[in-house]
Amino acid sequence: MNIFRLTGDLSHLAAIIILLLKIWKTRSCAGISGKSQILFAIVFTTRYLDLLSSFISLYNTSMKVIYIGCAYATVYLIYMKFRATYDGNHDSFRVEFLVVPVGGLAVLINHDFSFLEILWTFSIYLESVAILPQLFMISKTGEAETITTHYLFCLGLYRALYIVNWIWRYYFEAFFDLIAIVAGVVQTILYCDFFYLYVTKVLKGKKLSLPA
């Protein structure tokens, strides 16, 4: 474990908690893409199946349980408890265009053609594009609540910090996983225009609004 990965995990945890609290406190999921949240729930489920088979550390296990629990709680709040506030019209990204190619790629390019390894690879590839429905929804509505932008910033920052963690591990542990690195770079690149808007607008106290 290194400071970059720890900060990354905490940033990821913060994002998940911010979103859950935002929906719970405001009793509304306006502006939130339910599809992205479903994709994240799938990412965690397919990645953390080893919860049952291998124990790495208390930290590792507890974070996985928290991530999975919060992901499903968020999906439940969006599609069940506060479904009246779910903006389905603007959450119209065709996720099948993500899941099918990612599934095919996971079968073709992986470290080991085994069930758990292919699921892990699928979850890595899926995570890199899972935010697209959310970014697409913001481009359709033309704006995002400030709390949602903080959620997205923490979410984007987490994988950016993981890239630094991978550089660190390459030099100090001679460890690298090309699949995770390539997917992580793609994932972080997808946030770039959001990062620009966040820094130039939200951090200056303005509302994030896109030229619709």
Binding site: D9, S54, N60, M63, K64, N110, E117, N165, D177
Partner: peptide
């Protein structure tokens, strides 16, 4: 393919 290292990252 690389030997299956223990996946210790989240």
């Amino acid at each position: 393919d690389s030997d299956i290292k223990q996946k210790d990252e989240l």
